[in-house]
């Protein structure tokens, strides 16, 4: 049994089906990328895994437990943490409050535990400590993304799902965000990364899936995908 096991799910918005009979597996300790263009169903897939949307058919299990009928808060309790697209920070709360709220679930809660996790997050993202008393909405895009990732780490994830962390950031920031993701993975957290930035995301991943029109078009080891002729022409423009 895989760590995360998605089996044959169909997902629709009303009458419009977005994901078709999709299956994927993630093993513990892996870094897996899901790449694809706009509208290919990447975010919908993550929203379905984290319980914000319900699949019409198919099953999802996490560490052997079926989760596809659970509400999002129970999935968080199980250790599957989703850092959503567009960061979705609590804009009128301070950076520190945003981070603390990340540790709301019962595995991460508790004064001592929160302080310990917070120290780790600050070590990984020192910028957040400087900004801890600022309102989240006053931060730059890159800093906001760091808060979003930090908030996800505060939840003590067993599997961290990141939805387009590089979205709308300057190239230099994109590099530092991907370096952060690499560090998180090196510390032993399983990471599911959804990205449009194919080169960066595949080069730090173990495996990858290519999503096209709601279906898996290609899958394999990341190094193999990077050299795939279809990916080269369609996503890397080489």
């Amino acid at each position: 049994m895989s760590f995360l096991d998605v089996r044959n799910i169909d997902v629709s918005y009303g009458d419009v089906q977005v994901i078709f009979d999709l299956s994927l597996k993630i093993e513990e300790g892996e870094v897996v990328s899901i790449i694809g263009g706009n509208g290919s169903g990447k975010s919908t897939l993550l929203r379905t895994i984290s319980g914000l949307m319900q699949a019409e058919s198919g099953e999802i299990s996490f560490i052997g437990k079926p989760i596809h009928k659970m509400p999002p808060e129970d999935i968080v309790e199980a250790g599957l943490i989703h850092v959503p697209e567009g960061r979705r920070l609590f804009s009128l709360m301070t950076v520190l409050d945003n981070l603390i709220i990340g540790a709301h679930n019962s595995r991460a809660r508790g004064k001592a535990k929160v302080a310990e996790t917070l120290a780790k997050v600050y070590e990984l993202l020192p910028r957040l400590q400087e900004r801890q008393n600022q309102m989240a909405l006053t931060l730059s895009g890159g800093e906001q993304q760091m808060v979003a990732i930090g908030r996800g780490l505060m939840a003590q994830p067993k599997l961290l799902m990141l939805d387009e962390p590089s979205l709308g950031l300057a190239p230099i920031l994109i590099k530092s965000i991907f370096e952060t993701v690499r560090k998180i993975a090196n510390q032993g957290t399983t990471v599911l990364l959804v990205e449009q930035d194919v080169k960066h995301s595949l080069s730090l991943s173990d495996r990858g899936y290519v999503l096209e029109h709601g279906r898996i078009a290609l899958e394999g080891p990341a190094s193999q995908l990077l050299n795939d002729p279809h990916i080269k022409t369609a996503y890397l423009g080489i």
Binding site: S50, L92, R109
Partner: peptide
């Protein structure tokens, strides 16, 4: 308070709050 913080978070973004494990 923790509960107060969860209430504020929910009022700002209900969906994001549920991704924090808040019912």
């Amino acid at each position: 308070t923790d509960t107060g913080r969860a209430i504020r978070a929910t009022s700002l973004d209900r969906e994001a709050a549920s991704l924090m494990g808040i019912n």
